[in-house]
Each structure stands twice: as structure tokens, then as C-alpha cells.
Simulated assay, not measured.
Amino acid sequence: MEKLGLEVLAAGFGLGLVWLFLARLRSGRARHGLRGAYFSACAQLFQRPVTAATPGGFPRLNGGYLGQRFDLQAVPDTLTFRKLPALWVLVTLPVPLPLRATLDVMVRPTGVEPFSNFHTLDEQIAPPPGFPEDCALRSDHPSALPPHDLLAPHLGLFDNPHVKELVLSPKGLRITFLAEEANRGRYLIFRDAELGAVPLRPETLLPYLDALLALQQDILAQETAPERRTA
């Protein structure tokens, strides 16, 4: 009788493990589906949007907006030293520009930003007047940076506390912003760091697209200004 009881207990334990495995499998599939749809609402902003899967389950979207081709990436940051896991969105305008150096402006750098090449740039620069007080600047060629009067009108980007980074380079422009943080209660109690369950809203993304286009136009306008053509 005792042996039969142990067999029943073992069978119940085994069924419990199977149920737990299947539940986790269903949960993982659902999570992957939600992540894969993260840019679905924003696709309407673009002409001929193309979406590709990434190893982390989040999509990468490429599409046309007002005559320019943009690239969107969602990068989760679950490093343990952060207060809360975060989801960063990288909005990139990959277009050749008449710049001779890369400038990376990062606010509140932590030393480890998985979405950025900030710390691979050789030279750190003291922020000029008008830049955010808590920002750091790095470049690969400090003597060839764009003039301050070009950047000044665009520094209002950092009035938005979600904006983390602005990159200008000969290959294009990028804004990185904080899209989401994990739910504090679920993370502290259950270590649940799920991100991206709700698609990014188009009205959240749109100002960043317009900001990059405005910056691109100013860079091109300065390059073709009369004093530069006659220099």
C-alpha cells in the first residue's frame, strides 16, 4: 500500500512537471508573439515597411517616411545593476552626410549601454555651453566636429527625459530613447522582466522621425550655404 502511494505521488509529481513545462512553453510562445508585434502599430507611418526578426524576439523595421528610409530597432537591457530592466528604441536615419567626424551625445552614461557604441569612440569632450548638464560627449575626431550653432537648435530633444542618446556621423543620424521599463512590483517580487507586451504607439515614435529629418536638413543646408560654396 505504501509502495502504491509512492507511485501515485511520483506520477503526480511527474504530471506536475509536464504541466509546468507546457505552461512555460505556451508562455514563451505568447511572449515571442507579443515581442514580434512591437512595431506593428508604427508600420502605418512608413511606406513599404519591411520587418525582420532578431534573436531577442523583437522586430527590426525598415521603411520610408517623407522620402527617407528609416531603421527601427528595439533593444532590451536587463543588466542586473539597473534599477529596472529597460527597453530602448533606436531610431536611425542611415543616409550619407557631409560630416567628417562622429559625435555621440549621451545623457547619464552608466558605462555599459548595450545599444550604443559610445564607449568605443576614442575621445571624450567637455560639453559646450547649452548642452544638458548630465551629458557626456565622445568623438572619433574632435577637431572636425560640426559647429555648435548647427547643434544648438536641436538640443531641445533632451528636454524629453526619455531621450538617451543623439548620434551624428558621416553615415547617418540616430536617436535612442527609453520606450519602457519593467513593472516595478512584478520585477522586485517575481523578477519578471517582461518588456514589449504593448506595441509602440505611432504618436510616440513620430517626433523622433521628424527630429532626425530636421537635423539632416540643417546639416545639408549648412554644407551648401553661400559662405561654404565660396570658401
Rank of each mutant, 00 (worst) to 15 (best):
E223H: 14
E165N: 09
A144E: 06
V95F: 07
A101Y: 06
F70W: 08
A10L: 13
P96V: 14
P207S: 00
Y65S: 03
V95A: 06
P170S: 10
E203W: 08
A11Y: 13
N62F: 06
E180Q: 14
P132N: 13
L213Y: 03
E113N: 03
P114L: 13
G33D: 10
P199S: 10
R31T: 14
S143F: 08
Q44P: 02
D77Q: 02
R174W: 05
R184D: 12
R60P: 04
A52N: 07
I175M: 11
D134V: 05
P98A: 05
S40C: 03
V95P: 04
E223K: 09
V198E: 05
V107M: 03
A231H: 10
G172Q: 04
P132T: 06
T51L: 11
K83Y: 07
A52D: 12
P55W: 13
K83N: 10
P98H: 07
Y38H: 05
P96E: 09
N62V: 11
E181N: 11
Y208G: 00
L178F: 10
A43Y: 08
F190V: 01
L84F: 12
P132K: 03
C42R: 00
G196M: 11
P146R: 02
L209A: 00
A231L: 08
I125G: 08
A86K: 15
R108L: 09
P199W: 14
T102M: 07
T80G: 05
G63H: 05
L9C: 08
G5F: 05
F39V: 00
A182N: 04
K83A: 15
D192K: 06
R35W: 06
L45K: 02
T102A: 11
S169A: 13
T176K: 04
R201M: 06
T80I: 08
G185T: 15
H119Y: 15
A43D: 05
I219Q: 11
R26V: 12
P199Y: 09
S139V: 03
D149H: 14
R100F: 01
N117M: 03
H154C: 03
N183L: 13
S116F: 08
G185R: 14
A126I: 04
G172K: 04
D77E: 07
I125S: 11
S27P: 01
T54L: 15
R82T: 12
K83H: 15
L79E: 14
P170V: 09
Y65T: 00
G5R: 06
L151H: 05
